[in-house]
Write a protein that binds this DNA or RNA. Structure first.
Lengths: 236, 236
DNA sequence: CCGGACATCTGGTCAGACCAGATATTTTGT
DNA sequence: ACAAAATATCTGGTCTGACCAGATGTCCGG
C-alpha cells in the first residue's frame, strides 16, 4: 500500500499516521513487534531514514517503544491518557470552583501543619507582591496563582499539589480567570487581598483549623463574586 | 559544547534535550530561528540525520516548528506547561490515597445525584466484569480503574473528573497498583468487590449519602490493605 | 524606485554503508 | 541427551554524501 502522492504533509508524518492507523485498527496490538525498519521502508516504498523519523515521532507520542537491537513494539494502552485527556471536556468555572472548594481548604489545613519557615516566608513574599498590585494590574492573577501553588508545596502532599496544578492549569482557568479579572473593582480586589492575608496568618500561626476556614471562606466568596460577574457577563 | 560520550540515551534524545535547554535558558527565544540543520550537525559534531531526528522529536513535543525551506523556529510559549508538570514530584501511594479520600466520596455522592440510567448501566457492566475476575487476573486493575472513571463521568463535574483521571493516571499509580496487586489474596479481592457493589447500589438508588459513605469506607479499607502490604514489602 | 530573474539557503528525501547490542542458532563440553 | 558457550544473524543506531524542491535574498534591468 504505497503512500498517496497528493499528500502535502511531510513524509514522516504520513508514515507515522499510517502506522498509527494500523495500530488503532488492531492490525498490531499492544506488545506486538512491528516489522523491521528496513522491511517497512521497502513495503511503504520509502527510505529507511523516513521510516525512522516516523517511528521517532510515534515514540515521542508514546505510541510505540523502540528497543535497540530488538525491534519496535506497540506500547500498552494502560499508559498515556493522552487520548483520554483530549477527550475530557474543559471544566467550566463553576465546576473548577466546586473542586477547589473541596481540595484547597484541606491543602491550607495541611500547609498550616507542615509549612517550614522558608515556605511561610515564600508565602509572605508572594502575598506582599500581590498586595502591592492594583486591581488593574494583569500580574495580579500570576501572584494569586503563585500563592496557591506555594500553599500546595507547603502541604507536603504531592498528590494534592498535583491536583492544585491541574485545577489552576491552562486547561482549566482560561476564561474563568479572565472573566473574574474583567469585572474586578478596586474594592473587591482589596477584599481578596484581605482574604489571602487571613490565610497567610493562619499558616504562619500553624493553625490548621483557622487555615481551613479562611480558605473555605476565600473560595466561597470567589464563587459569589464570580456568580454575579457571570450574570453581568451573560446578560449583555 | 560537544556531547558527552558516557550518555547511554539515544543520540537524537541527547541533541533534543540540549536544544531544549538552549531554548529554556533564553539562548533562543520564541520566534527565533535555530541554526540550519547542517550547521547544527557540524557544531554538535553529529550527523545531519541525527539532528533531524532530534528536531522532529522537538516538533512533536511542540517546542519548535519546522517550516520547509525556511528554517526551524522556536514556538511561542502560549502552550503546555510541560516544564511545570515535569518538575512536580511523583506522588507516593499514601499521598494519592489521601487525595482520593478527599475527592472520591464527593464524586460518588454527586454521581448518585446525577447519574443517568445509561451511566448506571455502564457502572453495572464494569462491576460485573470486575466481579468475574479472579484475584490473580491482571485485568482486575483495569476494570477497577474503569469503574472509578465511570463514576467520575457520572458526577457531572468535569473538574472533579479531571482530578480523578490525574489521580488514577500513569504518573501516580505505577508502583502503588503493582504493590497492592502483588499481595492481593482471593478473600481480600472478594471484599473489594463487595465494597464496589455497595457503591454501585447506592448510585443505583440515587442515595448520595450512602454513596459517599460507601466510597469513604472503600478508600479507607484500601488504605489499610495497602498499609499492611507496605509493611510486608519493606520488611523483606 | 520597482519588479522580475537568478543565485543561494533551507529543509525533504534518498541510497548505501558500518557499528553495536539483542536474539536465535549451532556447536561444544560434559 | 542436556546445558553452556561460541557463533551467525537480525535489529536498531549512526554516518556520509548526494539530489530535489520550496523559500529567501540579491542584483540587475526597466
Amino acid at each position: 500500500m504505497p503512500i498517496e502522492s497528493i499528500d502535502s504533509r511531510r513524509l514522516y508524518r504520513q508514515i507515522a499516521d499510517q502506522l498509527y492507523q494500523l495500530i488503532e485498527s488492531g492490525e498490531y496490538r499492544a506488545g506486538d513487534r512491528l516489522p523491521a525498519e528496513r522491511a517497512l521502508a521497502q513495503q511503504l516504498k520509502v527510505s529507511r531514514p523516513s521510516v525512522r523519523e516516523a517511528l521517532i515521532a510515534l515514540e515521542v507520542e508514546g505510541v510505540v517503544e523502540i528497543r535497540g537491537g530488538a525491534g519496535v513494539f506497540v506500547v500498552d494502552r494502560a499508559k498515556q491518557p493522552t487520548a483520554e485527556k483530549e477527550s475530557l471536556t474543559i471544566p467550566g468555572p463553576f465546576e473548577v470552583l466546586m473542586a477547589r472548594d473541596l481540595i484547597e481548604p484541606e491543602v491550607a489545613s495541611l500547609a498550616a501543619k507542615h509549612a517550614t519557615a522558608e515556605q511561610v516566608k515564600a508565602l509572605a513574599v508572594a502575598f506582599g507582591e500581590m498586595a502591592c498590585c492594583s486591581a488593574s494590574d494583569p500580574a495580579r492573577v500570576e501572584y494569586d496563582r503563585q500563592f496557591h501553588f506555594l500553599l500546595g508545596e507547603a502541604c507536603a502532599n504531592s498528590a494534592l499539589e498535583l491536583m492544585l496544578h491541574t485545577l489552576w492549569g491552562p486547561r482549566t482557568d482560561p476564561l474563568y480567570i479572565k472573566l473574574e479579572d474583567h469585572f474586578h473593582t478596586e474594592s473587591i480586589w482589596q477584599n481578596a487581598i484581605l482574604e489571602h492575608r487571613e490565610i497567610l496568618e493562619a499558616i504562619r500561626a500553624h493553625d490548621p483549623k483557622a487555615a481551613r476556614e479562611a480558605m473555605r471562606k476565600h473560595i466561597r466568596r470567589a464563587e459569589k463574586r464570580f456568580a454575579s460577574n457571570w450574570q453581568n457577563a451573560t446578560r449583555e
